[in-house]
């Protein structure tokens, strides 16, 4: 079981949450994408081994959307913040 710290509800078991997608592909506000950028963001994933920013929703809790910084090899969870630009700081 992974313990995910919800910014509003505190640490909760991961089964209360639902994984949505990798946060790396979220477009920046105001940026006009080229077709190639859109295609890459839609279809391609870094999918490297290690730390990722991911978008999850606390579906069985406050239903808030959060950016979780999680290691996909060890399942360690470093932090989670509400969705927004602050969540996309470099991973540890």
């Amino acid at each position: 079981m992974q313990l995910i710290p919800c910014p509003w509800c505190g640490p909760r078991a991961h089964i209360e949450f639902r994984y949505h997608c990798d946060a790396g592909g979220v477009p920046q506000r105001g940026h006009v994408e080229t077709d190639t950028e859109w295609q890459d963001r839609t279809w391609l994933r870094a999918n490297h081994i290690g730390w990722h920013h991911e978008i999850w929703q606390h579906t069985d809790g406050c239903r808030g959307w959060i950016v979780v910084t999680r290691n996909n090899l060890t399942h360690a969870v470093a932090k989670s913040v509400p969705v927004g630009p602050a969540g996309l700081e470099p991973a540890p």
Binding site: H14, Y19, H52, E54, R70, N72, L73, H75
Partner: peptide, 13 residues
């Protein structure tokens, strides 16, 4: 299990 993982081991739920 519905989350990305390279761990090759699962969770009890």
């Amino acid at each position: 299990d519905f989350y990305p993982s390279y761990s090759q081991r699962g969770n009890l739920p």
